[in-house]
């Protein structure tokens, strides 16, 4: 018991030390990005837990600015991909180009070979392009011709979807959406924040962020995140939440059963556990508490719960279902 206590103590100290970079990062990002704290937190969580983000929000909410600034602060490569209906998988992944001079094929790597990628309006590209990107996201390697290339770490894709314009779009299939660790919904900034944004843009020079870290720091922080302690009680809590999405009637919420066509997959449990640890790390804690799980629950589950026709007819969202589950599942 004493030994275990020392472990946690040491871990807490270690995490407290290592997570100092998060404060530095946040400060640097806030120089450029006003508000959108939740989006920045989620970006860092995804970066620390080696996941990808699907972002939903109207245009002009600093999505590109956020990820490009993050890339700059951690000294990472950044590429923005605008998805269009005529885009081809090779436009993203790369292709083989024949050189008549050398009489051989040479490989031209696509923009996916970067650390941070903004896949803008991912639902505007046809299924084969989406599929190519999502496969790369999952496998973290790309095959062009006979050669296979490993994608360099850290590798984070932040894809965006515009919730307003749905015409001429190719909605992502559930199986592919599941590959995003988080789905974050962002809203307009507050009045005070927007006033600040306005001032930034009217000033002579737009604020700039500096490179304060190396990508290696992020990779080492990832290793520390893995060490964050998760008690069995928290594991049980995560499982209860995920199982409540599958069999709500067993948790006394049979009323939502008809609204759910499918619940969270095992990937949901795995990701909820991972991001809870990362969130605890951001909060500079060496162990996960129920607050961490609850804070990340919506982002992990909102794209992993399938709604039935009844739910849509009654205007019930996945957020409503998650709220109901969180209000019913007891904290151990």
């Amino acid at each position: 018991m004493e030994e275990l206590n020392i472990d946690i103590k040491q871990l807490n100290e270690k995490i407290n030390k290592e997570s100092a970079i998060i404060e530095l990062l946040t400060m640097e990002l806030s120089k450029v990005i006003v508000g959108q704290k939740e989006m920045i937190d989620r970006l860092l969580v995804a970066l620390l837990s080696n996941g990808h983000i699907l972002l939903e929000g109207v245009p002009g909410l600093a999505k590109t600015l956020a990820i490009s600034t993050l890339a700059k602060t951690i000294d990472a490569d950044f590429r923005r991909l605008q998805f269009t209906p005529d885009l081809l998988p090779a436009d993203i992944l790369g292709t083989q180009i024949y050189s008549p001079k050398k009489e051989s094929f040479s490989i031209k790597k696509g923009p996916i070979f970067s650390n941070l990628i903004l896949a803008d309006e991912i639902n505007r590209a046809p299924a084969k392009v989406q599929s190519a990107l999502l496969e790369a996201m999952q496998e973290r390697q790309i095959s062009i011709g006979d050669e296979t290339f490993k994608l360099e770490d850290p590798f984070l894709v932040m894809a965006t979807q515009n919730p307003i314009e749905q015409e001429g779009t190719y909605p992502l299939p559930e199986a592919q959406v599941d590959r995003f660790m988080l789905k974050v919904v962002i809203d307009y900034p507050k009045k005070e924040e927007e006033k600040q944004i306005m001032r930034h843009n009217l000033a002579k020079e737009f604020p700039q962020s500096n490179c304060i870290l190396k990508t290696e720091s992020i990779l080492s922080a990832r290793e520390v995140v893995k060490e964050v302690y998760m008690d069995e009680k928290i594991e049980q809590y995560i499982l209860d939440i995920i199982f409540a999405t599958r069999t709500p009637e067993k948790y006394g919420i049979g009323k939502i059963k008809d609204y759910i066509s499918f619940g969270g997959s095992p990937r949901a449990s795995i990701n909820l556990a991972k991001v809870s640890k990362a969130f605890a790390f951001i909060k500079r804690r060496g162990y996960v508490i129920p607050e961490d799980v609850r804070a990340m629950c919506y982002d992990v589950l909102r794209h992993r719960i399938g709604l039935t026709y009844e739910a849509e007819a009654e205007n019930i969202s996945t957020e409503d279902i998650i709220t109901e589950i969180l209000n019913t599942v007891e904290i151990p």
């Binding site: 206590n5 302690y229 162990y287």
Partner: peptide
């Protein structure tokens, strides 16, 4: 209680 329950606290 949280410290004892979730962080192996003493």
């Amino acid at each position: 209680a949280d410290n004892i329950k979730y962080a192996k606290g003493l």
